[in-house]
Design a protein around this nucleic acid. Structure first.
Lengths: 116, 116
DNA sequence: TACTTATATAATAATACACTTATATATCTA
DNA sequence: TAGATATATAAGTGTATTATTATATAAGTA
């Protein structure tokens, strides 16, 4: 009796490797409830902009996230059409909510115009 | 509304990194339905014995698998008492059954005395 | 006890990864 | 159009990871 979403084992390994990084995993968990732009992640993780760009690119290359431009900003969101989306949900449900990170940004006035 | 099994995000990242390797992921999937010894994995993966030993050691270090000695053999099995076990199940259910690997061993007469 | 089988550990080498710095591109604004 | 802001890409570097070879340990067997 198989689950609705069965993926080739090597592909799952690749997805897990991708998610097996604290920064990327947290990005994905956040995107599961709010779309965000790169500048917000840079603030949250206190890391460099290129580092974040490289992380989201890897996620985009696998089709896990998608981007859409809004003016200067590029808004990232989860790609709900991804074949991996059901799998992803089964992983993310085990993670504590990361909403506090956005709340902190808000408090610092850093949740700026780019995303509402 | 949270799932019964919520794990600290950094720990999940570490577990995912651990599972983000084709060999280890397949080992875990197989152990989900049958206990196995190292020699069987060596045959299945056509790799060296030390390579397999090092993989299972990593899984053991995280408490995902446990071992029990039976004569010369060390039988590995999933540790159902692990705090990660429910999480693991949610990952494994997306993987295709690996029973054919054991069937192949059987056919080759390599599923020897160590495990029944 | 000597030999064999099963497994673990250590050292090493090749590769992959994630970060940094520097630079390029794209959009917005004065 | 010039400058500012947001993001991407490229190159380089240090670290982590995985496999290999060699050796150690532990149990079974003649």
């Amino acid at each position: 009796m198989q689950e609705e979403s069965v993926i080739e084992i090597e592909e799952v390994a690749n997805i897990l490797k991708l998610l097996g990084d604290k920064t990327r995993l947290t990005i994905v968990k956040i995107l599961d409830s709010h779309d965000c732009c790169v500048c917000e992640f840079v603030e949250m993780f206190k890391t460099s902009q290129p580092a974040i760009s490289q992380h989201v690119r890897k996620l985009k290359d696998k089709g896990i996230v998608k981007e859409s431009r809004r003016g200067q900003w590029i808004i990232y969101s989860l790609n709900k059409e991804s074949e991996y989306y059901p799998f992803l949900q089964d992983v993310l449900k085990h993670l504590p909510d990361q909403g506090y990170r956005l709340d902190e940004l808000e408090k610092q006035g850093l949740r700026i115009s780019c995303c509402e």
